[in-house]
């Protein structure tokens, strides 16, 4: 029988670890996951935002941030993101 771990359980196990968030558009975030809710709104700490533009990748550092779950596409647990 297939394992019974639910997708959000996996994310729950990532709390306290680095996570890489890829949005539906050309934006990505990495940060330490502090928490999330059923909409996958996420609270991240020590955040880097990456925006892919025709001019290249723009990076910005952010403090503690609540990321709206609406535009999230994929989550990569334990990854430091595009730099790694």
């Amino acid at each position: 029988m297939a394992s019974q771990i639910l997708p959000l359980e996996l994310i729950d196990r990532c709390i306290g670890s680095r996570i890489w968030v890829i949005m539906k558009n050309d934006r990505e975030f990495t940060g330490t996951l502090l928490g999330f809710d059923d909409f996958v709104n996420m609270v991240l700490e020590d955040v880097t935002e990456y925006e892919t533009t025709p001019q290249g990748i723009k990076q910005a550092k952010l403090n503690q941030t609540l990321l709206n779950g609406n535009n999230i596409c994929m989550l990569i647990p334990g990854s430091s993101g595009p730099d790694s």
Binding site: L8, I15, G35, D37
Partner: peptide, 27 residues
């Protein structure tokens, strides 16, 4: 606020309450 915190399946203790965790705590 919309939602309860994600389900805890008893395997891991919840994070200490002093550390802001959920979106609601952050807000």
């Amino acid at each position: 606020e919309q939602t309860p915190p994600p389900p805890d399946h008893g395997s891991t203790p919840p994070p200490p309450p002093s550390v802001s965790g959920s979106p609601t705590d952050f807000l």
